[in-house]
Design a protein around this nucleic acid. Structure first.
Lengths: 343, 343
DNA sequence: CTGAAAGCGCTTACAG
DNA sequence: CTGAAAGCGCTTACAG
């Protein structure tokens, strides 16, 4: 903040021959100022290179133009898409994004929520419905609009926008079963501190039960987010259950890692093994064979969340406060063409 | 900022039986307060659920704990990696990231710089060395540390960290030539408002000249950032110059799009055509054949930039102010195994 | 349409 | 080790 001989509103006012209150008006409510005055002030702003100090402005007005966004990581493109969606709505409205990456740690999330609230953001976006007790205390105590994202299977602190991870996974397993598979493996993402991953796993299990499929625990694996882990789990699963007909991976990166491993080993997809993923990243449509997956509204979640926050900032009522944006099963060549008409 | 009956420092002070100045000390310079006092204050903070108002704090101290980061887009994982690197250094130091996506528009960049400076960030990261005149005026007028990234071929406003896009491309073309190719195509990213892309194109052209390769303009194409565009340019280039031996794409996404297209069309890589990319995204090592590419320090750029900013905030001298983190040619199976020992 | 006064909630020297 | 006073640079009612 230390700009040498920084020009303040008062300096602009003096040059324009008005009071600083008028400068403030020109900048914030230009229509409440006479045109001639406005032009003189604007000229003075230009001449001095004045940049308003929004720290002071925010303190005086008790409102900032900053929205906090908490995501597990920004290096996973799915969250980058959500942030992109937020930004596309927020930026034109004059808001800026304060970004926080929790690294899938609820401890870190709590610390970040605290640090963000200290900045008095006008709103907050969080990922998932699962938080630490301390985080809940903070979130409930604040008056600002809060949107929890990527999950609608639970009770939000305030608002939520996302889709049902549970039903999406249930639907995909149903599809695979309709295509003839009875022995369907599932490779989960780590479920610790990740309610979305947990719901996906539960959705798989429920579908297996509902459809009377093979429920062997050996068909379930867990893998960190990487191509490599997908390939590894594929091999483990094939070793443990050589008769597995399809493997459903909790995200596309795992599924693609497995698909590439199949290419290397000459395992024919889907003839020898069907593979399905989750997320519908751009790459899923590019590989050969194309990856069957679950398309989710990554970008739309960000847009919708931003709209809900803006509406509340403007004093509006947001109803419903939980928005389910749905999902879509995308059939590609990595699974046998099915008659399924899902979701 | 409107927290119902928001607790202020004064409330904490009253409960702890001290002045608010002492509360401020406990929070900012805990070692300057007697232990008993400190504990009482901390207990009062806890009891009241006090969250310091850093807007007020920043105004009074004339410093924020916010660093602005301007990138073309966050949906391209290469910039996400750089932001990740920044955040990993900045977060432990108590700084938060204010994110701005310019969408590869220098106009938008100018607006964002202005908006960010209004927040009085403690430092600023920008992408590239190319900006609008207005942006230069703003950047030069401010006293805060500024790091321009992803390019060291030019004069930074303040500090810079990156690598030479020019030399990286020159080196890759040299490698391809050493492996026997004389007719090397180049698919550039759009060079408008993108000095990194421009340097890459210039590096290609210079290498073609230096090595006396086929310099046909028909060997040069431009493509937006997508798998699809990579596939398209591949086909166009093959149609225009069926004798092309190698195609060097200005980023991995284009190269991979082309590689997938080759898979679909039965074009053998590298026997029929060698393909090289730029960035070394994780996927490059996963596909079959693996993609020869240029590895660049995406994450390291963010870390280094953050360190330089922090050092300057702390009053230190940063020398040199331009840091070239280098690049590395990664030979994989998409080009004929070469004897090249580049960079 | 424009301005004087008060105040936003902190931190910074300066005392003691 | 602790506190009273001043001030950071704006905006908000309230007048006129």
């Amino acid at each position: 903040m230390e700009r040498k001989s920084a020009v303040r509103m008062e300096d602009v006012a003096r040059l324009a021959g008005v009071s600083s209150i008028t400068v403030s008006r020109v900048l914030n409510h230009p229509d409440k100022v006479a045109e001639g005055t406005r032009e003189r002030v604007l000229a003075a702003v230009e001449a001095t290179g004045y940049i308003p100090n929004s720290v002071a402005g925010s303190l005086a007005s008790r409102r900032t133009r900053v929205i906090g966004a908490l995501v597990p990581t920004i290096t996973n493109s799915i969250f980058a898409d959500t942030i992109d969606g937020m930004d596309d709505v927020l930026r034109p409205a004059g808001y800026q994004l304060l970004l926080g990456a929790t690294g899938y740690s609820l401890d870190e999330e709590s610390r970040l929520i605290s640090a963000m609230l200290a900045q008095r953001p006008a709103g907050l976006l969080a990922t998932g419905l699962q938080h630490q007790a301390q985080a809940y205390t903070l979130l409930r105590a604040t008056e600002i609009p809060i949107v929890e994202t990527w999950n609608v299977d639970g009770d939000p602190v305030d608002m939520a926008v996302g889709f049902s991870n549970f039903r999406a996974c249930h639907a995909m397993v149903t599809c695979l079963a309709e295509q003839g598979a009875r022995r369907i493996g599932f490779v989960s993402a780590p479920t610790t501190a990740n309610d979305r991953a947990e719901q996906r796993l539960l959705g798989y299990r429920r579908a297996v039960r509902d459809l009377g499929l093979d429920a062997d625990p050996a068909l379930e694996r867990e893998a960190k987010f990487s191509f490599h882990a997908g390939a590894e789990r594929l091999l483990e699963l094939l070793a443990a259950r050589p008769d597995v007909e399809a493997i459903f991976f909790a995200n596309d990166i795992l599924a693609l890692g497995a698909l590439f491993e199949c290419q290397r080993r000459g395992i024919r997809v889907p003839e020898d093994l069907a593979i399905a993923g989750f997320d519908d990243v751009e790459l899923a449509a590019q590989v050969n064979p194309g990856l069957t997956t679950v398309r989710i509204p990554r970008y739309g979640i960000g847009r919708q969340a931003a709209h809900m926050i803006l509406r509340r900032i403007e004093g509006g009522v947001v109803d419903p406060s939980v928005v389910d944006l749905g999902f879509e099963i995308v059939q590609r060549a990595s699974t046998p063409a099915g008659s399924a008409a899902p979701a």
